[in-house]
Design a protein around this nucleic acid. Structure first.
Lengths: 198, 198
DNA sequence: TTTATTAGTAAATAAACGTTTACTTATTTA
DNA sequence: TAAATAAGTAAACGTTTATTTACTAATAAA
C-alpha cells in the first residue's frame, strides 16, 4: 500500500489558513486551495468528506486546540482572581497577535453559521473547552469574591473586550504606530477585573 | 416614463436581510435573492452596481442608520457617566434583540472583509458614527472620572461585552428558558461601568 | 516478483454563480 | 394619441464552484 505523504496534508492545512487570513473565508475554494498547495483537488477529499468537513476539522483540530493550550499556559484554577485573569489576558494577547490565522478563524466562528456549529460542537459555551477557566470562575464566585453571574456571562465580560482589542491591534498594524500595546492591554485587564469584583 | 415600483425595492432589501439572518451571508446569491423577492435578477442591478455595492448600501443605509438612532434615543453627552452608559446599554439591548437581521449584519461586519470595509467607510472607528458617545466619553475622561484610554479602547470595553450578551440572547432563544434577561444585562452594565472608573 | 491496495493526478461533471442581452411593459409628456 | 423613456422580465452569458470519474504511481505483504 502506498503510504500517505504527510507533507501534502500539512500543506493543505497551512495554505488554507493563509488564504483565509489574507483574503477571507469567502475566497477559499477547494480548487484554488488545491492549486496553491500543489495538490490535486481529489487529494483533499482523501482525508476530508467535503468542504464543510474540512473547515470544521481545520478549525477544531488546527486552531482551537493550540489556542486553548496557549491561553492556559502556566494558568491554574487555584490562582488568585486578579493574577489568574492577568495570566489569561497576557497569554491570549501574545498568542493571538502572533497567530493571525487563528484569530481570523475564531472571528469567523462568531458569524458564519458553518463555523458556529463547530464552536457548539467543541463545547466552548458548555465549558468543556477551557474547563480550568470555568472552575476558576466558579470557585471565586462561590467564595463571594466576584459577582454571581452564569458562566457564559462571566465569559462575555472577561473575554470579549480582549478579543476586540486584538482586532484593533491588527487594524493598526498597517499604520505608522501601533495603538494597542501590551501595557495598554494590561491596564484594560485591570479595569475588567475591578468591574467583576463584588 | 414608467415609474419605479418601490415595493419591489423594499422586497429586495427585506428578503436579503431575511436570508442573511436565517442562512448566513454566504448563502445569499443574487439569483436566489431575485427569486425569493419575486423579481428578475436584472431588477436588482437597476439600483445597485453589483453585489458588493448592494451589500454595502444595505449595511450602511438599512442597518447602521437605524441602529445608531436607536442606540442614541434619549441619550445626551451631558448625562452622568453611569446614567449615560445605562441608557446606551438598554437602548442597544432592546433594539438589537428585536432586530435580529441588524445584529447579524453587524457581526458579519467584524469578520467579512467586504463588510469590514463598509464599517471603515462609515467611520465607526473614527468616531463619525456615534459622535455623541465619543463626546460623552471624552468629557468624562477629561474630568478624570474614568480611566484615560483612547476612544477605540473605551469602545471595546463598553460595547463588546454587550454585543456578546446579545449573541448569547439569540443562542438561548431556541431553548426552553432565556438566560439573558434585561435585569442580568443591567447588572453587567453596572460591572462594566464600575471597571471604567478611575 | 507479483498482487493487492491505497495515494495521488488530470480532466471532466453538473450545478450555481454574478452579470448581461434582448426584449416587453407601463407611464409621462408633447 | 403617439413618441420617448425608464422599469422590468426571461433567458442566456461565460466563469467558477464543489465534487467525481477514470486513471497512474508507489508501496507492503504474499
Amino acid at each position: 500500500m502506498r503510504p500517505k505523504n504527510l507533507a501534502k496534508e500539512e500543506a493543505i492545512r497551512t495554505v488554507a489558513l493563509q488564504i483565509i487570513t489574507e483574503e477571507g473565508l469567502e475566497n477559499l475554494s477547494m480548487q484554488r486551495l488545491a492549486k496553491a498547495a500543489n495538490v490535486s483537488p481529489r487529494t483533499i477529499y482523501i482525508k476530508y468528506e467535503n468542504k464543510e468537513d474540512f473547515l470544521i476539522k481545520l478549525f477544531i483540530e488546527e486552531v482551537l486546540g493550540a489556542y486553548e493550550q496557549a491561553v492556559l499556559e502556566n494558568f491554574s484554577p487555584e490562582l488568585g482572581f486578579a493574577e489568574g485573569v492577568k495570566k489569561i489576558w497576557l497569554n491570549t494577547f501574545q498568542y493571538l497577535t502572533q497567530n493571525r490565522p487563528s484569530f481570523a478563524l475564531l472571528q469567523y466562528g462568531k458569524s458564519s453559521p458553518l463555523l458556529n456549529q463547530a464552536y457548539q460542537k467543541a463545547g466552548i459555551r458548555q465549558g468543556q473547552f477551557f474547563a480550568p477557566i470555568h472552575r476558576f470562575l466558579e470557585s471565586h464566585t462561590a467564595a463571594g469574591l466576584i459577582r454571581n453571574f452564569p458562566p457564559d456571562v462571566h465569559r462575555a465580560l472577561l473575554f470579549s473586550p480582549l478579543l476586540d482589542l486584538i482586532s484593533e491591534y491588527f487594524d493598526y498594524q498597517s499604520r505608522p504606530t501601533q495603538l494597542i500595546t501590551e501595557d495598554l492591554v494590561l491596564a484594560c485587564c485591570e479595569a475588567v477585573t475591578k468591574g467583576m469584583l463584588t
